[in-house]
């Protein structure tokens, strides 16, 4: 808000000439060019871009890796599955992260690696008395035909749906695995990440949403669906079937930089995989 400043300046700026500050201004003009020239030769490290669902896990492993190997820089950008896939195709990022399967036209251009699998959990506020639903009930809730918790054994309160936005890997997986193509009602609140859904559900006793099992914590309650609770054990046993892959993708024929190779090796190593499982992910690739 410089409008007011301006009026004051009109008095302030009247001063005698002093110094030759313009030289430094000229110097400032040249600096960007210098900076750009210097930057060119310098490697900025590994960039891994994509799914906001995968990013927290990739970031965690990157932190561990960087702790063990001082001086390495692995930049994890959480911008979305499609952005990650696009970035990998364009070569903007060496590795893309996706929380959905590649579309055929994308698979033509990219190689993929399943780093883990992730279960989708339907979550509610911890104070919500409902703790299990049938798949049919979940579908009815999200398609908008059941609108009150009282129909599900809960209080006489409206149901506030919280979903991911169109294009999100999690949303795609939920539509496919749980809604099975049924449309979700347009009155649902939309949030830009799993963490944001968890945050909204944790604050609203009437809310219901879905997130990756890996980030369920004690601020929300994950519901059993068809009497099967979402857990790593149930996923591995094949009884909880709402599971999707977490992918690393890269351009077909791409030669990895040494750091990219080492990072991928670390993620797939026994230690890396164990870390991911500790965080609630399930070993890939799909067994059932």
């Amino acid at each position: 808000m410089h409008i007011r400043t301006r009026r004051l300046l009109s008095i302030a700026a009247v001063r005698g000439p002093r110094g030759r500050c313009w030289r430094s201004l000229l110097f400032l003009a040249l600096l960007p060019l210098l900076l750009a020239a210097c930057g060119q030769s310098d490697s900025a490290g590994l960039t891994v871009t994509g799914s906001t669902s995968v990013a927290p896990f990739a970031e965690h492993l990157a932190e561990l890796y960087q702790h063990a190997h001082a001086g390495t820089a692995i930049n994890i950008q959480s911008l979305g599955s499609s952005a990650g896939i696009q970035a990998a195709i364009d070569g903007v990022a060496e590795i893309g992260m996706s929380s959905r399967e590649l579309k055929p036209e994308e698979a033509d251009k990219l190689d993929e690696l399943v780093i883990a699998r992730d279960a989708l959990a339907v979550i509610v506020h911890p104070a919500n008395p409902v703790s299990k639903l049938s798949l049919k009930q979940v579908q009815d809730i999200f398609s908008g035909s059941v609108r009150s918790w009282s129909a599900l054994g809960g209080p006489e309160q409206p149901i506030d749906l919280v979903i991911r936005e169109a294009g999100s890997g999690t949303a795609g997986a939920f539509d496919e695995l749980i809604m099975k193509g049924k449309a979700i009602t347009i009155t649902a609140l939309r949030q830009g990440s799993n963490g944001a859904i968890r945050q909204v559900v944790a604050e609203n006793p009437n809310a219901i949403g879905y997130i990756s099992l890996g980030i369920v914590d004690n601020t929300v309650k994950a519901l059993a669906i068809n009497n099967v609770a979402p857990s790593v054990a149930h996923v591995e046993a094949g009884t909880y079937t709402f599971v999707r892959p977490f992918l690393f993708v890269w351009r077909k024929g791409h030669t990895f930089s040494p750091l990219a190779k080492q990072y991928i090796d670390y993620v797939m190593s026994a230690e890396g995989q164990q870390e991911l499982q500790n965080l609630g992910l399930v070993k890939g690739p799909a067994s059932p």
Binding site: L35, I76, S193
Partner: peptide, 30 residues
């Protein structure tokens, strides 16, 4: 400029600013 959490090494590195960090911490409930 991206959302990467690392110290930038050159002008070609991505960065996360304080405002973006605040947004992510708050919205994601981290």
């Amino acid at each position: 400029a991206g959302t990467a959490l690392n110290l930038p090494k050159s002008v070609f590195s991505p960065v996360r600013t304080m405002a973006v960090h605040f947004y992510i911490l708050a919205v994601e409930g981290i």
